[in-house]
Design a protein around this nucleic acid. Sequence first.
DNA 1: ATATGTGAATTGATTCACAGCG
DNA 2: CGCTGTGAATCAATTCACATAT
Lengths: 217, 217
Amino acid sequence: MTQIPSATVTRLIAYLRILTALREQGVERTASDDLAREAHVSAFQVRKDLAYFGRFGTRGAGYLVASLERELQRILGLNRPWNAAIIGMGRLGSALADYPNISDYGFALKVAFDTDPKKIGTTVGGLEVHDMRNLARVVKANAIDIGLLTVPREAAQAATESLAEAGVYGILNFSPVILDAPEGVHIESVDFLAGLKRVSYYLHADQEESDPQAVAG
Amino acid sequence: MTQIPSATVTRLIAYLRILTALREQGVERTASDDLAREAHVSAFQVRKDLAYFGRFGTRGAGYLVASLERELQRILGLNRPWNAAIIGMGRLGSALADYPNISDYGFALKVAFDTDPKKIGTTVGGLEVHDMRNLARVVKANAIDIGLLTVPREAAQAATESLAEAGVYGILNFSPVILDAPEGVHIESVDFLAGLKRVSYYLHADQEESDPQAVAG
DNA sequence: ATATGTGAATTGATTCACAGCG
DNA sequence: CGCTGTGAATCAATTCACATAT
């Protein structure tokens, strides 16, 4: 199959959320227009995105909400359980450990890791904190698929490699660094400092637009 | 000027981080190759991204680390202070309130808001928690530029509109919803549940690739 | 000699228009 | 007749090649 655009994957996740909300509101049918309006994209885009994976609608009638929701879950791999571990139990790791929505769609937080002897052996948000040195063993025992990487930036690359060696092929990276992905490992980054800087750029750009003499020089 | 690609803005932030790290290591000069390798893009891409904003290098010699770092800060609007407020002092808002790196590059957390009477009047991570009903007044008194939106998803759209009315034109949204941006407001989203689902998609896609009969049916 | 800066070529994604099906 | 599904057209972003400056 031709490679799916990364932007399409992001939009499928948005469509899925919209469908879930529609189903919860008791709506049974929808159309590419509706999804487009809610997702802030064009109806062409919605249909093209779906067309990469198959035909899910009925011409003239649109889509069945519940059935398209299931299809998107299947496409996104959300119709099976994923076991996750938190790597780094600082403030962010601890906040994730008891974030309620994380168990949506079968993501199960199983264990946590840290290097700090004061944390190892404690339980945070229901998760036992293990020694990083036992990563490989504990990952195997718990069949961990995904690592949530919340270590300080200096430790992020080494932790990534340890995860890869332990057989964890999916990483959600929260630290503000560009990681080298080991062979076969997929890394997604959630970088709020970068988001903040993007906001800065656009605010700044808007101001220059309304204040043109500042551009000169 | 032609519109800068959004991907370029993201990459400029990456280049800036690399330059800061190089400067801290005492490196004085660099080249588009170096930046490209570190940022995981092509050297063409680095030069094209920079060319949108001017000429910053010396032919044959490359770039001066400190001076290109300053230029990127200026381009991204990071050479001036930005005042930020946290909207919603749940777990995530509280974690942000005492996240140390947030004051990098002149982002200053000034105040927080919540609707819960038990939280209003308290101080979390050095931030006084105000009543959401006083948003407009407190935003003005503190010259808030950016709102970090950490309210539950049901409250996110209303909070966005309150912020816009109060004159806050930059929002970093942490809640897993697609917000309608009011006129003149720039919204960036940091959505870790979406990141997790992207990881799911790619792990799942890799498995189907190595297990082709699963595709049929 | 070397690495930038940039117009031209290419690739890829989005938009469009309409054929196809219910 | 309405709305999906899709090849063709358009638009945008990336890649390339090389002229240019030091």
